[in-house]
Design a binder for these strands. Structure first.
Lengths: 251, 251
DNA sequence: GTCACTCTATGTCTTTTGACATACCGGCCG
DNA sequence: CGGCCGGTATGTCAAAAGACATAGAGTGAC
């Protein structure tokens, strides 16, 4: 069962460990101070916890500081589609402001720490610091690009390509936020069921395809860590040619 | 071949016919005046014209005033995924600002009129009228919801459900911007190839599934007009329960 | 230690979807 | 007029993916 952990002392934004990762663009001290006073605190939730449910608007916005999560939607048939995976630095909740009820849920893959502020105060960002408002739009458009990419996979790639795509994509995203270990492996808390739900495949077919990809030496997963043997081969297999990563905003 | 039509006299934003459609939220006269001076003009392009190509950044943002279009991505195999359809009032180009080159193309389904302004001036919106900046974020998040919905279809629905979903979804969107004729039909410039590319199905299978859906009396298409016989039956078939439409911003 | 539970693995059979080939139909053009 | 082209329609066969059944491996609870 999802548990809510004791809230730890909130980390000041100026000392936010994510800001020391090269992936994020710098903000002025004034901007950081402003974000700081918006923040209502950190929360820590356990793996499997549901941050927000479909149909419910929690009125809070989050930035994922540590840990992995995913956004999903469920059909009345019970089928679940994972829309995208969330890694440290990702912003959560922009879509929820839109309707009285959220169209999707957010669930944690690992124990995670999140930075929280009230959705009602989002507008202040635009009035006090237009550049931060611009950043929020950037973040929304960037997340859409990731969903676009997933849609291309699910719509046009074979099962093998989809899986290759997911592996390389998550591998690169994990690396970009500094999760890569010295031996080249990255944490990988995604089960085969999650992959199946993200890629529009059945669990069994995911398992069998993964098996072929593993025995052909493309990757290895052990102890929740992913190793990609030949990243270029996997990219080629997936028909995936990533554009260079650029700095992105962090709120 | 795509032709560029003679540019007609640009319509002043205050008289924009879209603003008389109930679907869009009102702006203050100052906001409209500001949008007006951002605008560099209207352009009209013919059906099949490519507004922007994959890999190219045109440095222009558009609002679709009349006509239909779609965003798409192509894999090296030649397979094309339509990411979403664009109807009057939709904003085009937010994702393009993000990279030096756009990750997707935009092509017109019909002759269309677009309102254009330079992407470089987008920031002015945030500094001069924070509420308009907020609206742009809203638009980005709203478009992501549509892509989410498509991803759910392609990932989890059967061919029949996907097609039912596409029909009811486009039907409702067309109605919401006042395209519905008195007899209940709406324009439908989408070919079976477009549907196939949007839904991740082959052309042949799309055709056959469409046939079954048509002979079971769910819809009819003639002269480029779509009639939905029993919208509730189609929604049920598609496992689609739309949340009520709300006013949305127009830039 | 063993029970329960989650995740992974694998075999067999069925269903859905795709590939290829072919035909039809209406608009456009010389 | 006849030919071409884009879009639609249909048949046959093949491949991809799903459903169901069952089993093993790892982990945590008591």
């Amino acid at each position: 069962m999802p548990r809510k952990y004791a809230t730890p002392a909130s980390v000041p934004c100026a000392q936010c460990p994510l800001r020391r990762v090269g992936a994020f663009s710098a903000n002025t001290p004034e901007e950081i101070a402003f974000i700081q006073q918006l923040k209502s605190g950190d929360i820590v939730l356990g793996a499997g916890a549901v941050l927000s449910r479909e149909g419910v608007n929690i009125g809070q916005l989050h930035t994922l500081l540590e840990g992995w999560a995913f956004r999903f939607r469920t059909l009345s048939s019970g089928a679940r589609q994972i829309l995208n995976f969330l890694l440290p630095g990702d912003f959560i909740g922009l879509q929820e402001r839109l309707g009285a009820h959220s169209s999707h849920g957010v669930e944690l893959l690992t124990t995670a720490r999140l930075c929280r502020f009230p959705a009602a105060r989002l507008r202040e960002l635009y009035t006090h610091h237009p550049s931060l408002g611009y950043d929020v739009t950037w973040i929304a458009a960037h997340e859409e690009l990731i969903v676009d990419e997933n849609l291309v996979s699910v719509g046009q790639r074979t099962a093998m390509q989809r899986i290759a795509m997911l592996l390389i994509h998550l591998y690169k995203r994990a690396c970009s936020v500094g999760l890569q270990h010295p031996d080249g492996r990255v944490p990988f808390p995604v089960t085969q069921q999650h992959m199946a739900d993200a890629l529009g495949l059945s669990l069994v077919h995911t398992n069998k395809t993964l098996h072929r990809l593993r025995t052909s030496g493309h990757f290895a997963i052990s102890n929740g860590m992913l190793a990609l043997k030949r990243p270029e081969a996997i990219s080629r297999l997936a028909d995936y040619y990533a554009r260079p990563l650029r700095e992105r905003p962090l709120i």
